[in-house]
């Protein structure tokens, strides 16, 4: 347990969008280079922007293929949203390769946009 504590904020958060804002306000100096995450800028963009887009697009997308009653097919994706967002957010930072994260998110977005497109054009 004690060794876990040593990890506390070893990396710099100067690349994080939110951190920069807070850092300026607090004159928060960033003194070390990030050694924990590779492609930190990319990952932060993925975690903050693309995660939100993906999880939002997945709500109407999932409604088209979930094999439930209509109420559940529409309602359940909205209830899944917090879990999907959390999973994608953590995945953005934890995945070994940033490219893989990009690929996963892009695939999810494309598949769900296609589902939405076919569902709307079929009506």
């Amino acid at each position: 347990m004690a060794s876990d504590n040593d990890y506390c904020l070893q990396g710099s958060s100067k690349y994080c969008i939110f951190s920069v804002l807070i850092a300026k306000a607090l004159t928060f100096p960033m003194e070390r280079k990030n050694t924990t995450f590779n492609g930190f800028k990319n990952r932060t963009f993925l975690a903050i922007v693309l995660t939100l887009i993906t999880s939002v697009v997945m709500i109407p997308g999932m409604a088209t293929y979930l094999p439930f009653h209509k109420n559940d097919a529409i309602g359940l994706p909205t209830l899944f949203f917090p879990f999907i967002w959390t999973a994608l957010f953590i995945y953005s930072y934890m995945a070994k390769s940033v490219t893989k994260v990009w690929l996963v998110m892009a695939t999810l977005i494309l598949i769900h946009i296609a589902c939405i497109y076919f569902a709307l054009s079929a009506e």
Partner: peptide, 25 residues
Amino acid sequence: IAFTGAFLGLATVILVPAAAYVGFN
């Protein structure tokens, strides 16, 4: 609290409009 808070905060702003997109045009 985190789950219900996230849902209640985002329901009217993001979740309902997104859910209505396909099912209710």
